[in-house]
């Protein structure tokens, strides 16, 4: 900065006010197309969506549209179905993420070992990622159906079930259906990210540790985990937010039922907006979900920063 000051003419700026304004505006003009796009595509819908939360917007009521203040939020506070959905969301999100992560990590560790046909195995393991979520939802719904699918019969044969029935229709077990489908579908994401991180660890660290006397578990604890931790944190964060918002499998497999036992906040928003056509209320729920997820994200980002700064 100091050098530009030094280069300025010593007897002050002789440009006219008009020229000065033009100079000021110039960078904004160059970035205008992008700025307009960002505002139009991202900020306007966001603001509109947020504003809906404070208005009475029901598609079937032509007189709706008035500003109602915090009415939706007061309603929400007393809405038992919403509270149920919140609990279900926690359950759905964390069991999906944890299982996806664990299996993904195990898969990555296996794929990181040299063996014959490893390239093929890697390609196959990443296949579920390519299956559209609706298709995998349908697939798994059929697999859990005792009429056409094998899983209830296997569970019965193993003695886990007293008779081959559909877990999706039992309120006690229904949530496990979409979770299993989600885990199957999401493992490749973790496997890919963890495998990439694993392959970046220098091999001679393991060798040095082996000579120093560390067994396989100790090597995993003292080398693999610290190296993977930042990647783990960021991928878990991304997946958590994503899965909390991810209603496809639930809509397809159970549609929130039976008895709302698989209703998560995201599918509840969907139900409010497109079944009951109450966009105002749906927006209010969405806003609450947004705030919760933002808070969670901040937490993880801070955690990651402290972890990285310790390195």
């Amino acid at each position: 900065m100091t050098s530009t000051h030094a280069a300025a003419p010593p007897n002050g700026d002789r440009r006219t006010a008009k020229q000065k304004i033009a100079v000021r505006l110039e960078p904004w003009l160059y970035s205008a197309p992008v700025l307009i796009l960002i505002v139009a595509i991202m900020l306007v819908p966001l603001a509109l969506g947020v504003s809906y939360a404070f208005r009475d917007i029901r598609l079937l009521n032509p007189f709706s549209g008035a500003f109602v203040g915090l009415k939706h939020f007061r309603e929400l506070a007393g809405d038992g179905a919403f509270r149920g959905a919140l609990v279900n969301t926690l359950w759905w999100t964390f069991s999906s993420v944890i299982l996806q992560f664990l299996f993904g990590l195990i898969l990555a560790l296996l794929l990181n070992q040299p063996f014959k046909g490893r390239a093929l195995a890697q390609a196959l393991c990443f296949l579920p990622w390519a299956v559209p979520s609706f298709l995998s939802g349908l697939d798994w719904a059929w697999m859990f159906n005792p009429v056409v699918g094998p899983i209830p019969h296997w569970l019965y044969a193993l003695g886990i079930m007293s008779e081959p029935s559909n877990i999706l229709s039992d309120p006690e077990t229904a949530m496990w259906g979409p979770i299993v489908a989600n885990v199957w579908w999401g493992i490749p994401f973790f496997a890919i990210t963890m495998l990439a991180a694993l392959q970046a660890i220098p091999k001679d660290l393991y060798e040095a540790a082996e000579i120093d006397g560390a067994g396989p578990i100790e090597r995993f604890r003292s080398i693999t985990v610290p190296f993977l931790a930042p990647t783990m944190a960021i991928s878990i964060l991304l997946r958590t937010v994503w899965i909390a918002n991810f209603a496809d499998l639930i809509i397809v497999m159970t549609n929130g039922g039976p008895a709302d036992r698989t209703q998560i906040v995201a599918s509840y928003i969907f139900t409010q907006a497109f079944r009951r056509l109450d966009f105002g209320y749906a927006s209010a729920i969405a806003l609450v979900l947004l705030v919760l997820l933002l808070a969670y994200s901040m937490l993880i980002v801070i955690l990651r920063q402290t972890m990285l700064s310790r390195h």
Binding site: D204, L205, A208
Partner: peptide, 10 residues
């Protein structure tokens, strides 16, 4: 080791 192989987080 040539690369020293020091444990970076210790």
């Amino acid at each position: 080791f040539q690369s020293y192989a020091l444990y970076p987080h210790m």
